[in-house]
C-alpha cells in the first residue's frame, strides 16, 4: 500500500452561520497519484483546496500534508506544497520570467538555483520565447502554462491544481493534460486537482472523489465509479423466428436481460467486451442469427449524474467566487 501524503479528517467549513461549504469530508491521497475532486460549480472544491493549502481555516476537522498538520504546522505545510489557483495570478505588468522569479523568492530559493530551475521550466512548458514579454500579451494557454511553471519552482511534493483547464480550448486543454501527466511521471509528484469537466477527471485522475453540496459522495477510480452503475449495456437484434431467447440469455453468466421489444433485446453486462463475444457465440450455438448489435459503456458522466442528480446548480456559488470564475474564463480566451 503506498503512503498517504494527504490525510483529511472530518473537514468542514462554514461561511457565516448559514452556509456550509464543505461538510465533514474525509479522504486520503496516496503519494505519486493524481487525485481529482469532481463536482459542479460551488460544490466546495475550491474551499477544500483553500483549507488544505492553509489559506482558510477549517471550522472543524483537520488535515495532514506530508505529515504536517495544516493548522499547527502551517509553515511546514506551505514549504512542501504549491498551488496553481483557478485564477490567473501572474502579475500582468511583469514579464513571465519576472513572475517565476518572484515566486522563487517567496520560497527563499537562492537566485542561481532559481534561475536554473526557471530556465528548465520555461523550456519544459514551451514558454522560452515569451519569457521576456509582459504577461498582458499572453494567450490563455500561455498564462496557464506560466501558472504551472510558477507553481513548480519550489519542487513541491504536492501540487494543487484548481480547475487547471477552465475556459481553455480543446487543443490547449489536451496540452495541459500532457504537462500534468509529465509532472507525475518525471517528478513523481502527487497532484490534487479539482475539475468540473468529466473527461478531464476520467482521462487524468487515478482516483476521483465526487463532491456535491459540500459532501464527498463517492470515491474511487474512474473505472470503479463507472462499474458502480452496474455495467455496460448491450443491444442485439436477432433474425425473427418467433422464439423468445430471453431465458437462454439470462442463464449466461454476467448477463441480465433488462428489456425485450419483438426480436430486439436489451442486456446489462459486467465486463462488457468479453461477455458480449460469449453472448453472440451462444446465440449462434442455439441456431439463431444476430443481425445487429451495439455495446454502450457508461461514461463517468452517467455515474456523475446518477450520484449528483440532474437539477441545475444556479445558486450555490458566492458572488466573489463566480466573479473570479468569469474573469478566468474571459482571460483564458484572450
Amino acid at each position: 500500500m503506498p503512503e498517504e501524503i494527504i490525510r483529511a479528517e472530518g473537514l468542514s467549513r462554514y461561511f457565516g452561520k448559514a452556509v456550509l461549504a464543505v461538510d465533514n469530508v474525509s479522504f486520503g491521497v496516496f503519494q505519486g497519484e493524481i487525485f481529482g475532486f469532481l463536482g459542479p460549480n460551488g460544490a466546495g472544491k475550491t474551499t477544500t483546496i483553500n483549507m488544505l493549502t492553509t489559506v482558510l481555516k477549517p471550522t472543524t476537522g483537520s488535515a495532514r500534508i506530508c505529515g504536517f498538520n495544516v493548522l499547527k504546522q502551517a509553515r511546514e505545510v506551505r514549504s512542501c506544497i504549491s498551488v496553481v489557483p483557478q485564477e490567473y495570478t501572474a502579475d500582468e505588468d511583469l514579464t513571465g520570467y519576472e513572475n517565476i522569479m518572484l515566486c522563487a523568492s517567496l520560497y527563499s530559493i537562492p537566485k542561481n538555483v532559481a534561475k536554473q530551475r526557471a530556465d528548465e521550466l520555461l523550456h519544459l512548458l514551451a514558454l522560452e520565447s515569451a519569457s521576456g514579454r509582459r504577461v498582458e500579451t499572453y494567450s490563455g494557454g500561455m498564462r496557464r502554462r506560466l501558472e504551472l511553471a510558477s507553481g513548480l519552482i519550489n519542487r513541491p511534493h504536492v501540487l494543487f491544481l484548481d480547475e487547471p483547464t477552465l475556459g481553455l480550448d480543446m487543443q490547449t486543454r489536451a496540452a495541459v493534460w500532457g504537462y500534468i501527466r509529465l509532472l507525475k511521471e518525471q517528478y513523481g509528484m502527487t497532484l490534487f486537482m479539482t475539475t468540473h469537466y468529466l473527461e478531464e477527471a476520467d482521462s487524468l485522475c487515478d482516483r476521483v472523489g465526487i463532491i456535491d453540496r459540500g459532501k464527498l459522495i463517492k470515491l474511487g477510480s474512474p473505472a470503479e465509479l463507472r462499474a458502480a452503475l452496474g455495467g455496460d449495456v448491450m443491444e442485439i437484434e436477432i433474425e425473427d423466428k418467433g422464439t423468445d431467447i430471453s431465458e437462454m440469455l439470462s442463464e449466461l453468466p454476467k448477463v441480465q436481460v433488462v428489456g425485450k421489444d419483438g426480436n430486439k433485446y436489451r442486456l446489462k453486462l459486467t465486463d462488457g467486451e468479453e461477455v458480449a463475444v460469449e453472448v453472440i457465440g451462444s446465440i449462434h450455438n442455439h441456431g439463431h442469427k444476430v443481425l445487429r448489435m451495439s455495446l454502450t459503456k457508461p461514461t463517468l458522466g452517467d455515474a456523475y449524474l446518477e450520484l449528483t442528480g440532474r437539477e441545475m446548480r444556479d445558486e450555490q456559488e458566492g458572488a466573489d467566487q463566480s466573479w473570479k470564475r468569469r474573469l478566468t474564463m474571459r482571460r483564458a480566451r484572450g
Binding site: 483553500n50 493549502t53 492553509t54 489559506v55 509553515r75 506551505r78 514549504s79 506544497i81 504549491s82 498551488v83 489557483p85 483557478q86 485564477e87 490567473y88 495570478t89 502579475d91 515566486c103 517567496l106 520560497y107 527563499s108 519550489n154 494543487f160 473570479k324
Partner: peptide, 10 residues
C-alpha cells in the same frame, strides 16, 4: 487571487 497564492507560500 494573487493574495491566496501568496498566502499558500511560506
Amino acid at each position: 487571487g494573487f493574495l491566496n497564492k501568496v498566502l499558500s507560500t511560506p
